[in-house]
Design a binder for these strands. Structure first.
Lengths: 198, 198
DNA sequence: ACCTGAACACCGTTCAAGT
DNA sequence: ACCTGAACACCGTTCAAGT
């Protein structure tokens, strides 16, 4: 996890990990089954950081807390979203996660099928939002103005007027990703609430 | 693109592509700058398959058509969603795409900033939904009942009751992914419409 | 019980040498 | 103008041999 956080998930190789641990890559096979096992462990570690102690909360608050908690995990571990939704979700950690979320929704009055739907829609958005990040070359934690300026500079004079307008706007004023996330999350939660009453 | 569709994006290597073309990997460098260039081309090819001839349509219909068109591309090219949102979006094809979408939203009355927000929220969902696919080992195009049965079988007796309930439900009855997609898309579009009137 | 060296079958990329 | 062979610095994984 340290290696992934510091050097990026693409640097998590058996050989590099061995180097960090002062050991040859082949030695790792005494402790894990292979690279897949390693990535599964990494996924579970990230997943366990998402708050699913949601009891006693209104279902909307519970889903909101889960989403915010996921975003905190993504902030610490930028590789987490990609890993979580590219891998099998049949481990115990994944099942526990799925069970808690479905439990909240079903107890709130969603039918089994509707709860599955709501879960899929919510997670599509939560994980999808993270990956919509425009692979910032300056690293994360920026306010996006530098990137907006780059894009603006890359647009040929007079072409793509709407893209240029948006790039110009956010060259001057920072883009608030968290506000955008919560705006979209609110739309979905409100819609789900309306669908709950049929 | 043929190679990616038939053998998966992970099989798209310079060496394998050379093999298919009856040529050594090194020869490819006479035609493209490198693997990055190859993947950019692949992304643009996929992107150009998404319908953005949206003129004359109501903004909601336009966004719906775009979403449906994207899903058709994903059905043909399962690697497309992952490639598109993992790569730089500064090429001409990407800019054209972004410009058309923003144009529809801005002309519909969204402010520059609100249009950027709406775009991000929509694409997070559209691309995110695709990647939420539970890497089906049986290949795609299944109705999910086989997978639901596998998950059900993997759940220890008496544990994860809600997950078990959902898995049981969809062991018998197919899960309609497209319906779920459109349900979520509708929630977001309705929410955006409401936000348009403030 | 754990580590190592060596090997195998892979990667992307460069570059001098060929036609 | 294009292709090739050979090389370099990488991958994941296996396995006999060491301690």
């Amino acid at each position: 996890m340290e290696l992934a956080d510091e050097a990026g998930i693409e640097s998590v190789t058996m050989r590099e990990l061995g180097r960090r641990l002062g050991v040859k890559a082949a030695s790792l096979y005494n402790h894990i089954a292979g690279k897949d096992d390693l990535l599964d462990g990494l996924m579970n570690l990230a997943l366990s950081g998402i708050d699913i102690a949601l009891d006693g909360l209104d279902w909307k608050d519970a889903m909101r807390r889960r989403a915010v908690s996921a975003r905190e995990v993504f902030a610490r571990h930028p590789w987490a979203a990609g890993l979580i939704d590219s891998r099998d979700r049949r481990g115990r950690e994944s099942l526990a996660y799925v069970d808690r979320v479905l439990g909240v929704l079903i107890r709130a009055g969603f039918s089994t099928a509707d709860a599955a739907n709501a879960f899929l829609v919510l997670d599509s958005y939560i994980y999808g939002f993270e990956r919509q990040r425009p692979a910032a070359p300056e690293g994360n934690g920026t306010d996006g103005t530098g990137e907006a300026r780059e894009i603006l500079a890359a647009i040929p004079e007079g072409e793509y007027p709407f893209a240029a307008r948006v790039a110009a706007e956010f060259s001057g004023k920072p883009f608030d990703r968290e506000a955008a996330f919560e705006f979209g999350l609110g739309l979905i939660l409100d819609g789900l609430e309306r669908s709950l009453g049929h």
